[in-house]
Design a protein around this nucleic acid. Sequence first.
DNA 1: AAGCTTAGTTAGATTTCTCTAACTTGCGTA
DNA 2: TACGCAAGTTAGAGAAATCTAACTAAGCTT
Lengths: 123, 123
Amino acid sequence: MQVNESIEDYLEQILIQQEKNGCARSVDIATSLGVTKASVSHATKLLRENFYIHMDDDKCITLTESGREIAERMYQRHRVLAQFLVRLGVREETAFADACRMEHDISAETFSAICRHAEKGWK
Amino acid sequence: MQVNESIEDYLEQILIQQEKNGCARSVDIATSLGVTKASVSHATKLLRENFYIHMDDDKCITLTESGREIAERMYQRHRVLAQFLVRLGVREETAFADACRMEHDISAETFSAICRHAEKGWK
DNA sequence: AAGCTTAGTTAGATTTCTCTAACTTGCGTA
DNA sequence: TACGCAAGTTAGAGAAATCTAACTAAGCTT
């Protein structure tokens, strides 16, 4: 399995829910990502087989070390990109939605350039 | 057929070649996009069927009005985004590659915010 | 003319992601 | 206890993009 956009979205969403509730549930992942439970089930099976997540007996999903690493990277990108866009004058909602797609596309070099400017101001 | 990332890339590449050589050729599209001739053939068939391109008897590919509209939008985004990233300190090559993916993802709102800042400076 | 090279097409397979539909399982409540 | 709901799984299908391999068709070159 290669880690692609879809997989990254699942991992990021699991992180968000895990931070909020202690663990993530399939049904909530489905709602947040706008996909069916069947799709989540399929994805979590893959993620489990490749040791990116752990699912305990009562279906509570948590990230493993390697899953968390990817999820944190995506979530950080998501937040920094959204903040950056807001400072460029984009409405918060649009910024968040666009950042959600951009986070998968940019190189480490571009991300660090954006990090440098997301905090500073510009004229 | 819905216009997605892949289709946008084909149209943009056809525009670039059309500007340079008067028309685009399948083999050059394949080389530029890093896909096989078979993939280009499949894509151009779709694009023809949906009236985004025209292919004359000697296989010379040109954009129709509606194809050109999409291609121009993508190419403009590509250039503006790349320029913007360069001004943020990203190396030209990386900027161009990242812009190539970002161009498909950003909303009109985000693009116009970036346009406003791509020309101005920032500190 | 015969053979080579290049461009393009077609057929068929593969991969990836998603869906619907039908199923199991567990829990709560009437 | 029995019913029904909610969560999750499985099977099967479809869409989209790509690939390889084999083909056609034109145009050069000897």
